[in-house]
């Protein structure tokens, strides 16, 4: 078990190293940032001078080693736009907004999907299934930015019930959470419905009925845990994706999250911030995936390591 964990952690570190390197290479490949920092009328000489001052005229190998060395010391560099702010601080102060939005939306989407799938299979109602599938298709047909704007128009502008932009208190969560959670819900309710249908024909389910178990108890106690197993990996990847920031939703609702700050940093070639942000996102990916891998043996005794 410990050896497995160590191996997985080393794999994670390798993944992070690759992400860091790719972020560096892609960033440098896109050009030097000085032209974007200066006003439009800046001369080529001024631009070159600023690039030189920021260290971008040094050989790439030197810049790379310098960067890696900084990472090991926990130094991610400073934002070129905002030299007083360490890049990592800019990312870190946005993390709570992103993480809370991601976790709440994910939890609600998944929980409601589980409830709906259970309901479909306990009642055996084809009408209920059709309703969820139809509603799901409708939601999926709308891109997040459109669905989000519709929500804002109806609930904020029309009914004045909820705040539409930024973060002004707990109520601010409602609209972005609805937007993300409904998207997640659609995904999981379909996967779970088909996974439960598959389980319902398994022999152990017939055995459970044969010993006198009720349908509700069989669906929840026997079929659901088996149906959740194949969903787990996908749910983990989705959660990791949400934790990395949802650029579109954050933009629609002016949500002060990581996605937004990363977008800005990319468009202004604020390399230090992009690199710090990508590293943080990658760390969350690695951590969530590791958590999922560790969860499998807890849920499924067949994959438990000796």
């Amino acid at each position: 078990m410990i050896r497995y964990l160590v191996r997985r952690l080393l794999q994670g570190v390798l993944t992070l190293f690759c992400v860091v390197t790719i972020a560096f290479v892609l960033g440098r490949a896109s050009g030097k940032p000085a032209a974007l920092l200066l006003t439009e009328g800046a001369t080529a000489q001024q631009i070159d001078e600023l690039n030189g001052r920021l260290g971008f005229n040094r050989p790439l190998g030197e810049q790379y080693l310098d960067y890696l060395g900084g990472l090991l010391r926990g130094d991610f560099g400073v934002s070129y736009r905002n030299p007083s702010a360490p890049a990592i601080t800019l990312i870190a102060e946005r993390l709570p907004a992103t993480i809370s939005l991601a976790l709440i939306s994910f939890a609600i989407g998944l929980t409601v999907a589980i409830g709906a799938a259970i309901l479909i299979h306990i009642t055996g109602s084809t009408r209920l299934r059709a309703t969820f599938v139809w509603g799901g298709s409708l939601r999926q047909a709308m891109p997040d930015f459109f669905f989000g704007v519709v929500l804002v128009l109806i609930l904020s502008v029309g009914l004045h019930a909820l705040p539409s932009l930024g973060f002004t208190g707990p109520l601010s969560y409602v609209l972005p959470v609805i937007t993300i959670a409904t998207g997640q819900f659609v995904l999981y309710v379909r996967l779970l419905d088909s996974a439960l249908s598959e389980q319902s024909t398994q022999d152990y389910v017939v055995t459970a009925y044969a010993r006198g178990k009720s349908q509700a108890a069989v669906v929840v106690g026997e079929m659901l845990p088996n149906a959740l197993l194949p969903i787990l990996t996908m749910a983990g990847m989705n959660l990791a994706g949400l934790l990395g920031g949802t650029v579109i939703v954050e933009t629609v609702f002016a949500w002060p999250g990581v996605g937004q700050v990363l977008m800005q940093a990319v468009s202004t070639r604020d390399f230090a911030v992009v690199q710090a942000g990508l590293l943080v996102v990658a760390i969350m990916f690695v951590v969530v995936n590791l958590a999922v891998d560790l969860l499998y043996p807890v849920l499924d005794p067949r994959v438990r390591l000796a």
Binding site: D203, Y204, T207, A210, P225, N226, D300
Partner: peptide
């Protein structure tokens, strides 16, 4: 009525 099924490998819930 009690019932015994054909395939014991699949007749028990693998997770319990």
């Amino acid at each position: 009525i009690g019932m015994v099924f054909q395939d014991p490998m699949t007749s028990l819930n693998p997770l319990r």
